[in-house]
């Protein structure tokens, strides 16, 4: 540690914030440098006011944000809110959003499958709606489309970023 570093370390040493290694280096330097030793003693004379105890060390915030008020008396009186007004909206990642859409689609498909299984024997869901025999249609369809329907299996709807709207704005975030 040189003189410059030692003098920069005065406040940290006073506040017991140096690591054991830094502390050792600091004390070693001060013990062999008479000028830094003297400077530390001058520093110490006013340090109780200028560098105070742990409770009075915190300076006024340069950035007064909502987060800095969590320790204020007001915040202590009230339970911590789950959503704070004015807080930035954190967008959901596209990957997480796609997963959510896929889960919803699967849930809908499961409900449909249960409905089909409990419908009149020999009739499909389509039959019930259209009144036609859908066996022929089903033979040409893929197993997935027979159950889920083409609309659900539309790959675009699964791969499209739901946060991105046609106008280019993120969903749920005011432009």
């Amino acid at each position: 540690m040189n003189c410059f570093e030692a003098r920069k370390a005065f406040p940290s040493f006073w506040r017991l914030m140096l690591t054991p290694e830094e502390r050792t280096a600091f004390l070693a330097h001060v013990s062999r440098c008479a000028r830094c030793d003297r400077a530390f003693r001058v520093f110490a004379l006013t340090a109780t006011v200028l560098h105070g105890d742990s409770a009075s060390r915190e300076p006024m915030p340069a950035q007064a944000s909502v987060a800095t008020h969590e320790s204020s008396s007001y915040a202590r009186r009230e339970p911590a809110p789950t959503f704070r007004r004015g807080a930035p909206v954190t967008p959901v990642s596209p990957r997480a959003s796609r997963t959510a859409w896929a889960a919803a689609a699967l849930a809908a498909a499961a409900l449909l499958a249960i409905y089909v299984a409990t419908a009149t024997p020999g009739q499909t869901f389509e039959d019930a709606i259209t009144g036609e025999d859908a066996v022929g249609d089903l033979s040409t369809a893929t197993p997935e489309s027979a159950v889920f329907g083409d609309a659900v299996l539309d790959q675009d709807s699964l791969t499209q970023d739901p946060l991105t709207q046609p106008n280019g704005r993120a969903n749920g975030v005011a432009g």
């Binding site: 040493f13 006073w14 017991l16 004390l27 001060v30 030793d37 530390f40 003693r41 110490a44 004379l45 006013t46 340090a47 109780t48 006011v49 200028l50 105890d53």
Partner: peptide
């Protein structure tokens, strides 16, 4: 230096002297 830091915590006069300075 270590003894000074340790002693400063309990000494009211340290504060008084600092203010006077």
């Amino acid at each position: 230096p270590e003894a000074i830091v340790q002693a400063a915590e309990e000494r009211r006069e340290a504060n008084v002297l600092a203010h006077r300075l």
